[in-house]
Amino acid sequence: MAGLTKEQIGGILARQGILVAFALFMIGFSIANARFLDPDNIMGVVRSSAILGVMALGVTFVVISGNLDLSVGSMMSFSTIVVLDLHDKIGPTLAIPAMFAMTLCLGALIGFLVGYLKLNSLIVTLGMLSAIHGLTLTYSGGKNMDIADKAGTWFGVFGQGDALGIPVPILIFVLLAAGLGILLAKTPFGRKVYAVGGNRTAATFSGIRQARVVFSCYLISAFCVATAGLIQAGRSLGSQNTVGQGLELEVLAAVILGGASLMGGSGTIFKTAIGVLILGFIQNGLLLVGLQFYAQYVVTWIIIILAVWLDIAAKRGRLWSPIA
């Protein structure tokens, strides 16, 4: 490559590595199996990634603000169970806002504990993971929740419907990503999220009310979780109590894969979406080339480590860590 020094190439790789990796995957898989680039296949992948994706959008805000959210998985189970239960009790039109309100209350509680009381977000959300799981089980009495009249409800539209020829989950994901992407990149609030995550002290010294910013990020995360719960509930019209279990870490994996630093202050909605799609396409691509479903976990593991490793290696200017 003429005109580019080794450092410049390294810099590009460090900044756009995720896109390069994404492109390589797509090329690799499409060579290995022609069906991979089939529009139906692509649509299917995006569709099945929508729930994870919607949750990852919210967690991106939390991570950029310098915190963690491990509670999104069990919170999603909660939303799903609640909306399914309320569907039969008060009807879908009331059930949806009621479920959103309840989920946002949980988000507000976490936001209060982490933002205003300044408690460690890892432990708080770990505790909330357990607590919300217990709340869900108590709510449902440990039983699965099903809509009684599955044929007679329009509620399934959120999970199964099509609008303008596009599956509704994809539509929700894309619209939400666009909206939140603009919020993060273009508004004063978004700027403050980066500032608080980049240096909480300096942000406070600049007159930013960091507690309010952190609180808002958890509200956004809860809103996304509620949306994901809506899609999940609409998709199956019935659910187990543990439907979101383990998703918190997969979501985090997607966000990290998108290049957001766990230290806060960096990451974008666009890159998180790419991270989500990478996870989705790896899963799909591995299946198409004949590997079993669970091989994706192993591949995801390797990709996460490599992605983060190369990122910090580029920043410190050497591949291996200086740890003695």
Binding site: Y194, A195, G198, N199, T201, A202, G265
Partner: peptide, 19 residues
């Protein structure tokens, strides 16, 4: 530690208090 957000660009740092 208190004055700057080192990972942000010059413009964003200067306008932060009045954003």
């Amino acid at each position: 530690g208190q004055g700057l957000i080192l990972g942000m660009n010059c413009r964003d740092n200067i306008t932060l208090p009045q954003i």
